[in-house]
Design a protein around this nucleic acid. Structure first.
Lengths: 166, 166
DNA sequence: TATTTATAGATAAAATATATCCATGATAAA
DNA sequence: TTTATCATGGATATATTTTATCTATAAATA
């Protein structure tokens, strides 16, 4: 069981975009350069974040990406599900119906108990992810970051951010 | 993010083995036939369950597999970790150090905050899996199974189980 | 209006992970 | 010694993830 690398990239991108002033944007190219990751694959994930209404995209020159809502209202669950999909990690294949002791459909009115138990654990995982907001994570980052990092990042942002007309 | 099919197979096998009397065993072939799944691949997972001391194996004719401890002391976490490994689903690749604003190692004494947040959620998942015992799941199964299933399974078990010497 | 720079979408190649099968060796019972 | 079983490793196939490329479309600018 492994989460896509894109999840890590997406969370870092959302955190960086949260440091921009209101309507400013960063291009996909700039986001990829800042994190030292391939632009071609990152764009695929940014697209999904836009589709899930976590980011907004602004086309054309001076365009790019920005948050669609404040960091307080974006959780890790939102991002994980946008990038990784909403299908559960455990997928019941109904093996209880197979083999010599399998019966017809009428014998299985309820969902398999093993599936239900696995789902209970996945609900706990999703609940925990929903508790983690980007605001909380960003505050923790700022509080414990090396003192050199913040001004360095602010300088880079000033050089690379754009302010579209609308 | 997807759990291996082997996890589902392993849980069903452990539940079935829990229905055997004390020292009796079922062969890998019998376990595969009962669940209608490929024997060759199932054996790979059974081996891991043995290595994790969830099952015991008995070689030779009349040999097979049986539980290494009572169902009350086997949790879904034990089985998931035996089959799927213990590595976390989220693997931090330290992209915070890359790109134009990356600094030397001294700037990162602590684990990445994003990684810590993801790990908090995974701990919640593992805790929930550790709450689910095979005894609990089996009791729930027996209580809500179609009345035809139990005698059918008992008959099949009587035909297929073995009692090794030791 | 034409040009430039950006995102959106589709496609495909490469790398990795998962699933399946098969052949061989070791162990213990008959 | 023969037989039925588990243990191991390798060969093959399928699925998923990662990366790259191409075309289309939208918006700002000259």
């Amino acid at each position: 069981m492994k989460l896509s690398d894109g999840v890590e990239w997406a969370i870092h991108c959302v955190m960086l975009l949260g440091a921009l002033p209101q309507t400013a944007t960063l291009s996909g190219k700039a986001l990829a350069e800042f994190h030292g990751i391939p632009e071609s694959y990152l764009l695929k994930h940014l697209k999904r974040l836009v589709a899930s209404e976590i980011l907004e995209s602004v086309p054309g020159p001076r365009g790019g990406y920005r948050l669609a809502r404040p960091p307080k209202e974006i959780t890790l669950l939102d991002i994980v599900q946008a990038v990784n999909g909403k299908r559960p990690a455990f997928r019941c294949t109904e093996i209880r119906r197979r083999g010599p002791c399998g019966l017809d459909d009428s014998a299985y009115p309820r969902c398999c108990g093993i599936n239900r138990a696995m789902m209970r654990a996945e609900v706990a995982y999703r609940d925990a992810l929903a508790e983690e907001t980007m605001k909380g994570i960003t505050d923790e980052f700022i509080a414990s970051a090396d003192p050199r990092i913040i001004p360095l990042g602010q300088g880079w942002l000033a050089d690379n951010m754009r302010s579209p007309k609308s």
